[in-house]
Design a protein around this nucleic acid. Structure first.
Lengths: 218, 218
DNA sequence: TCAATAATTCATCTATTGATGAATATTAGT
DNA sequence: ACTAATATTCATCAATAGATGAATTATTGA
């Protein structure tokens, strides 16, 4: 009783889509649990596929993980590369808008990223993720350097390092906060609220960090 | 070759402090890795103690986890209960100061909390943590309700829910951000920077969220 | 002094894990 | 039609996991 569907050994008729099913199950399960906690048998059960298919398509559990990371992160990376670096504070809103639009449709993705970033730093899983994700971080650093925190734009007395930290906190935390926290504090992050969140964040940052010269009243 | 020290079976002379060593190792290792990924043998090795001591003192791996959570979270909870709810915006700074002073001395603690909050919601580990931690969350909710986000104090047009989210983001994210992110973005959260962080956060929140009537220029 | 209790090591049991290879059935190319 | 490549199931292996009980030694209290 390896699979739910009772099927004899041998190649089935038609396409079964087993590979895609495994990739998708990997995204969901590795996003919801730690790498160690997700067993190959659980992955197979979730994908309604025999566990041996993992070896067949990906060589190993880690191989499945790697393919999943590459194939789900690649389109995100492509989208993010199309965002122009925000030179003026006015661009901040559109930058943030694009950022959330890319991240929000796939809630499992930010969770996966954060979970892996919390794994041991020398682990293979983190190495694999960073191989792709570091490009995304490079882009983010460019935004920070060329955009919001550029030399003359900060209110005087504001530490640029801490300004960067505030920006990251406001942008990232809502996407990665543990569900229990979100529930308890009654702030529900759904796709509908995202454009409000963008406006809100931009407001906080402009009023809270930037010099009060050329600011439209939203 | 179960332990590093070659010792014969039987009760050793004097006190060996094995129980405390295990509690401490549990805090460190469960804070750095997921529950599933930390093996009892690894815990024992880290504590320089035989693995069977876990059963002797705590009954099981989960029992060790539970004792560790209760005994490390209890004093924190006590400290936090002594913070008066901030009624006026001016109290915000002292509230945040106390919050960081309680959290910062033990960097493993915030990480442990966030890691467990990211575990499956029905898991025993999360049940155990929430049994204590929910009291801390209740306190936090009181601060939010009675303090910063109280009726008339917000700048007009600011959504109270999102204001709460901003506050939580700015306070919590710096403590729980994955080390890799912190490194990459060059913001290093050490105890020395904490009082700067408090001032900075208060500034951002006052300028960014609150009504501009009675605000001293920091 | 002696028995009970406390603290420790060690060998081992069972379950689960990731991995593996053989067997089997379908499809595609010639 | 035949053959090679493709896709799948299944039984099983070796390693590791948490748990367990017996054996051993120290401490304490009567």
């Amino acid at each position: 009783m390896a699979t739910t569907t009772e099927r004899a050994a041998g190649r089935p008729k038609g396409d079964s889509d087993a590979r895609n099913r495994l990739i998708n199950s990997a995204l969901v399960l590795f996003g919801a649990n730690s790498f160690a906690q997700v067993s190959t048998r659980e992955l197979a059960r979730h994908a309604e596929v025999d566990a041996a298919m993992i070896r067949y398509y990906f060589g190993s559990k880690l191989g499945l993980f790697e393919s999943m990371v590459r194939e789900t992160l690649a389109p995100v990376l492509a989208s993010l590369k199309s965002i122009p670096a925000a030179a003026a504070p006015q661009d901040l809103a559109s930058l943030m808008q694009t950022y959330y639009q890319v991240m929000a449709p796939n809630p499992a993705l930010p969770r996966l990223i954060v979970r892996v970033l919390h794994e041991p730093e020398q682990s293979e899983q983190q190495r694999i993720l960073l191989d792709v994700f570091s490009q995304i971080m490079d882009l983010s650093r460019q935004w920070l350097a060329q955009g919001l925190v550029k030399s003359g734009q900060l209110r005087e007395g504001v530490n640029p390092e801490l300004a960067r930290l505030s920006l990251i906190s406001l942008m990232v935390f809502p996407l990665i906060a543990p569900p229990v926290l979100i529930k308890q504090f009654g702030v529900d992050i759904n796709p509908d609220i995202l454009s409000d969140l963008v406006k809100h964040n931009v407001g906080v940052l402009q009023q809270g960090l930037l010099q009060p010269h050329a600011q439209e009243e939203q």
